[in-house]
Each structure stands twice: as C-alpha cells, then as structure tokens.
C-alpha cells in the first residue's frame, strides 16, 4: 500500500527560498489590506451618505467583489484588462485583485460598523461644537474600529490565503514558488505539504498578533 518514498531533502534545501517567498506573500497581503481598508472605508461612506453615480459605482464594486470568485477577479485583472491593452505584471495582478476583493468585503463590514453607531451621537457631538470631521474621527471611527477589528483580522487571514491564487497567474509568491520547485523536482506532495505548514504558521501568527494587539488596544 505504501510504496512511495518520501524525499524531504530537496524541500529542506529550498526552504530558505520558500520562506523568502512567504515574505512576499505577506507583503502583498499586507499592502492589499492597507489599500483595501482605505478604499473599503471610502466605499462604505459613499454607500451610506451619497446618492447618484458615485453610489452606484460603490455598490457595483462591493457586489461584484462579494459575488464572484476571487480567482475570476484575478483573471480579470490578468487577461481581462489585456483586452484594453493594459498588461499588468503578476505582482500587480495579485495586488489589484486582492485589493479589489478585500475592499469589497471590508466595505460591507464598515457599513455594518457605521450603522451600529447611533446617529444621535453625531448630533450630540455636533451640538457640543465639534466639526463634522472631528465628530467622525473622534466619536464615530474609534467605535467603528472596535466593531470591525475582528472582521479585519479575518480579512487579513483571507488575504493571505487568497494570495495563493497568485500561483495561477504566474506570481512567484509562496504557492507559485512551491509549484515552481515542485514541477522541477516532481516532489509535489512534499513541497506542498511544507507550504501548507508555512501557511498554517503564518495564519496562526496573524491571529496571535491580532489577539495580542486587541488586549493592548481595547482596555476598558
């Protein structure tokens, strides 16, 4: 039944390369999350406060991001834009795809967060003499941040997991690098097993860091 010989040596030899690729994975995921948070915040505010074409664009963005596969979105940034003569590098494809996706999901989280803060608080802070900007940055945003903290953490995990799709558009992050080595040595199982462990560790580190940060940030 078990006439397969595991060869871990080639994997161990390329472990430094894999770890370097893991850093690239993290880099793309973090960048996509930062952009995603900024854009997602804008999308949520537009959907809550505006009418007209801008609102329509924001809603379309959110619904497209949430209702189509992430892989489809990557392909779209990959070859879809090629139809308009726009050719992105694999790095940009993954970054654009992840940002598009994260912004859409985060926008819904932010919207829920904003709706959870009662309007009366804004009116109260305005009547205390705060400007609209002050009311938002000092009263609303801190509360919203508390509400969306866990969804953001989850989205960060998703971003890392989703970046593995880079493998299918020729991006050499952790998965792409693994596939590269695996197809060169035909030790597919061993390579992907090690990569799975690396992903697991990354996810656990993110969750752990988030929990640590939460205890520091949210002390009542």
């Amino acid at each position: 039944m078990f006439d397969y010989n595991f060869h871990w040596r080639p994997v161990m030899k390329s472990l430094p390369d894999l770890l370097e690729a893991a850093l690239l994975t993290l880099q793309v995921a973090v960048l996509a999350m930062i952009l995603g948070i900024i854009i997602g915040l804008c999308l949520a505010l537009i959907r809550l406060n505006m009418r007209g074409p801008l609102r329509w664009i924001a809603s379309t963005w959110v619904e497209l991001a949430r209702n189509t596969p992430a892989l489809f979105q990557l392909f779209f940034f990959g070859f879809g834009l090629g139809a308009f003569g726009l050719h992105l590098s694999p790095y940009m494809i993954v970054l654009a795809g992840l940002t598009f996706n994260c912004a859409g999901y985060l926008a819904e989280n932010f919207r829920g967060g904003f709706q959870a803060v009662p309007d009366t608080q804004i009116r109260a802070s305005r009547s205390l003499g705060m400007t609209a900007w002050q009311a938002y940055t000092r009263i609303v945003i801190p509360q919203v941040f508390r509400i969306v903290y866990h969804p953001i953490t989850n989205q960060m995990v998703w971003a890392v997991l989703m970046s593995s799709l880079g493998m299918l558009v020729g991006f050499r992050e952790l998965s792409g690098e693994t596939q590269f080595f695996a197809s060169r040595t035909f030790r597919i199982f061993e390579y992907f097993a090690v990569t799975a462990v690396i992903y697991y560790v990354i996810v656990k580190l993110i969750l752990g860091a988030s929990r640590l940060l939460a205890t520091r940030l949210f002390r009542y």
Partner: peptide
C-alpha cells in the same frame, strides 16, 4: 482548523497528489 488555515488551492493539490500514495 487546519482546513480553514491552509489555502484551498494547496489542499486540493496536496490531496490530489496524496491520494495515489495511499493507493
């Protein structure tokens, strides 16, 4: 938890290549 913490694509490739090993 493992299945939620490893990318689906890695799981698929891993299982597809693991199944023949166990026959």
């Amino acid at each position: 938890d493992v299945f939620r913490s490893v990318p689906l694509i890695i799981q698929l490739v891993l299982f597809y290549n693991f199944a023949p090993i166990v026959g």
